[in-house]
Design a protein around this nucleic acid. Sequence first.
RNA 1: UGUCCAAUUGUGUAACGGUAGCACAGCAGAUUUUGGUUCUGUCAGUCCAGGUUCGAAUCCUGGUUGGACAACCA
Length: 563
Amino acid sequence: MNSEIKPESEKSLNFIEVFVEEDMKNNRFGKHIHTRFPPEPNGYLHIGHAKSICLNFGLAQKYGGLTNLRFDDTNPVTEDVEYVDSIKEDVRWLGFDWGDREYYASDYFDTLYAYAVKLIEKGLAYVCDLSVEEIANNRGTPTRPGVESPFRNRSVEENLKLFEEMKNGKYKRGEKVLRAKIDMASPNMHMRDPILYRIIHEPHHRTGNKWCIYPSYDFAHGQCDSLEKITHSICTLEFEVHRPLYEWFIKELEIFPSRQIEFARLNLTYTVMSKRKLLRLVKEGYVNGWNDPRMLTICGLRRRGYTPASIRAFAERIGVAKRDNIIDIAVLEFCIREDLNKTAPRAMAVLNPVKLTLINYPEGKTEMLKGKINPEDENSAFRDIPFSKHLYIERDDFMENPPKEFHRLSPGKEVRLKYAYIIKCVDVIKDASGHITEIICTYDPETKSGLPQANRKVKGTIHWVSEPHALKAEVRLFDRLFLKENPDEVDEGHDFTENINPDSLKVAEALCEPSVDGARNLQSFQFERIGYFCCDKDSTPQQLVFNRTVTLKDTWAKISGKM
RNA sequence: UGUCCAAUUGUGUAACGGUAGCACAGCAGAUUUUGGUUCUGUCAGUCCAGGUUCGAAUCCUGGUUGGACAACCA
């Protein structure tokens, strides 16, 4: 090894990319790859799905292939078109395009039925009359072999007849199932005569009443991959034990040999990820719906102000591997700050106001000051910010008896009002209970931004808004939904809801500079020195509403917290 | 008392028998009209025990720890 800088093309690969490159080199699938994203339309997509979406679409992009969107809709009991639409919207919003390759497992029901018949004819599948309980009991346990079904050795003819009768609706749910005939003593539970078809007298969101038997996941997923000529079928670790079955079907059905590769699903600190728990948060009213900005659903993140680019960057940054992982939520927050810092227009807003009056500034005068819309952008345009005698500043930016580390306003001290003047506190007015109601300052006209005197050193710079020009806005201050890194860490008999943060949402009235007027839904701003905020869909011209996406890094909070 | 999978700084992720690197987080400093950004520096790691080898995070054996698997869910 020498110290040469590695070119981009030699950047390290994740283990899936290693497999793909090996396969390409060995010509396993020819010169191209083809992936798929296979959601079940029974819930909303979350950040964990985003990882999978970025992985599947990202791989295809990298190696010049295509990605299909395929709905795994083999269970009409739980699935619905409502979810199909939201899933498509979310994938598209994330920035991925599946072209015209929108497929459904239900598109293949006829073929799947024919595959089942083929297995019966080969003597590899049989109709079983055992009840749910009996099948479960006969399956054994991971450490104890199962026992064979008494119906295991029916003739091919009888199986064919019975299976057709199942399809024709002759039997009720639970009366019969079609099972593969593999090995009831296999150490792998999934090989113990798995169920291929079950009877469900329920209309399907796409096939209506055509079918009353539906294929199981194992009998549908892999075959759909195969029918679509998917080269690399990427799924999460819990399907690893299904892989022998996946490959058994490919072999016995003699179909296109898609390759299943498993990776570790995403976990994040201070949140829950399972569909079941997310559903409870919604159903039990801990949050206001699936798109509540505190939810790590794609639609929740969108409403919170996360951008597609930030989520893609996150997926890239966390990597892919097979070991269980818990990603620090700070990584996600870093990614959105990184993006918004470069793109979000700046504005000043005061969230917790206290009045400030400039005694030597003319009453009734208004000046228009200039502020860069985005200082990160060299070519940034300017915005107009009105200034007057009567202002509001952040209550936290004033301290009567400050420690020496405090760089803001205090009696007798100077501070800069951003884009405006250097001011000096000369008096403090309090009410009967000692609560500060107004801060009295003088301003130095020589220090207006742009003037030579403005370059004078001062300890700090604070934001402000002009009282007569301020725009009121509702701000929704979101914080993490759970108090513990691992919300599932609870005492016996309790559950994760115990760890919900009671202060995950605080609503305040902010006073904003006029440039935020007319903000559109999903439009992001940086409220200077505070954080990134995004206009909510509840916002109207009469009542602006902003969601706090994430705070700015707050070094002062860290310092003051230690004191 | 089973099968499969995994184990690298606090958290992720590289290193494919040859200098343990990168990112986030932390800490310290510089710059700054955002206590933001940016920049610099810094802390900190190969689960354990054997073996193979000139050389092991990497290969082998045994252990330990964690995870998955016993829906007619996916």
